[in-house]
Design a protein around this nucleic acid. Sequence first.
DNA 1: TTGCGTACCGGAGAGCTCTCCGGTACGTTC
DNA 2: GAACGTACCGGAGAGCTCTCCGGTACGCAA
Lengths: 190, 190
Amino acid sequence: MAEARNEPVRADARQNRARIIEVAQKAFTASGDVSLNSIAKMAGVGPGTLYRHFPTREALILAVYRHEVERLAAYAPELLEDHPPLEALRLWCDRLAYYGRIKHGLADVLHALTDDGLAGETYGPIIGAVTLLLRACEDAGDIRPGVDPDDVLLMLGFLWRISPGEEGEARAARLLDLVVDGLRAGAPNL
Amino acid sequence: MAEARNEPVRADARQNRARIIEVAQKAFTASGDVSLNSIAKMAGVGPGTLYRHFPTREALILAVYRHEVERLAAYAPELLEDHPPLEALRLWCDRLAYYGRIKHGLADVLHALTDDGLAGETYGPIIGAVTLLLRACEDAGDIRPGVDPDDVLLMLGFLWRISPGEEGEARAARLLDLVVDGLRAGAPNL
DNA sequence: TTGCGTACCGGAGAGCTCTCCGGTACGTTC
DNA sequence: GAACGTACCGGAGAGCTCTCCGGTACGCAA
């Protein structure tokens, strides 16, 4: 169970690694078939550097994916500091939706990787984030008690199936309103 | 159900296609990561020709695989013409074993393709071949009646797990003797 | 601060994938 | 058998992947 993430020792190496991931994220979401060469150039490093950090294309994609998940999970506590719980929940869902639509573009590549322990690595942090938000909402009395994080994610499953674009944005927002409204404390049913 | 195999119209094109498959088969079984360039060169055609017939590496591998299966299935009736049924069965099993060990080398690549309707395309012809051989043996009274082709293939499953090489050959032959002996008419048990 | 060991950088380059297109020769028609 | 349309060939080449290695500068110790 030793979490063997290969974080470099030297500061410049860590910076390079982070910059590559950042650039790769934008590049990959724009189009799936970007050359690793061009990503290296955009990140201001040589091909050799990129390939030392990420030996294969898959490795880079995986790193981007992991990074996204981590940021998404870390976003929940940040939101709770600056917003009332229910609003934080709603904002977080917006971002989850955005993330879902983005990931949709990478789905082809990602699909080949899901054999690994990727699913667990993904849903763990995400469920943690949802749990945190729900508990805050419950404590504030904003939503009905006893809402299960898993249920929320289940309901939010549709976000993954909305394709990116102008229209998708609007549609996701509309459906999210419905879901969040349904969770509210004053909601009629049940 | 329209079998849309893209057989070329012109004779030279068909020859080229066949030669490429033949060369690719040898090349792939020798090592999985042969360059398509070198295969084209070995087949005496330009890269352009190879890529027109097989747009991607996967397509070529798939074609090789299909070709092998077809030849294996066609081998059964050939054997029955030249040999007594039980001997034919045994010879066919030898070849199945050989094929199984070869395919073992391609397993990595093949694994990614098994999502398609490949399984059906494989086992259909193979089961047909086994059925043919078993019926001939039954008619000749060489084996006990009521042997199911599926059962035979099931028993022969171990062939796929024997790795290629000198030692593997001998081992496969020994185990095959056991199985075929078990099928015989005069066998004691049951 | 200076000096040292080494982790790390990044460009040159070999080799591959895949495309484009002028030329060739196959099959057909008369 | 001769002439024609086109299916097909195959090499040149652009661009990519991945490696190797001399050089750089980071972290550390004194």
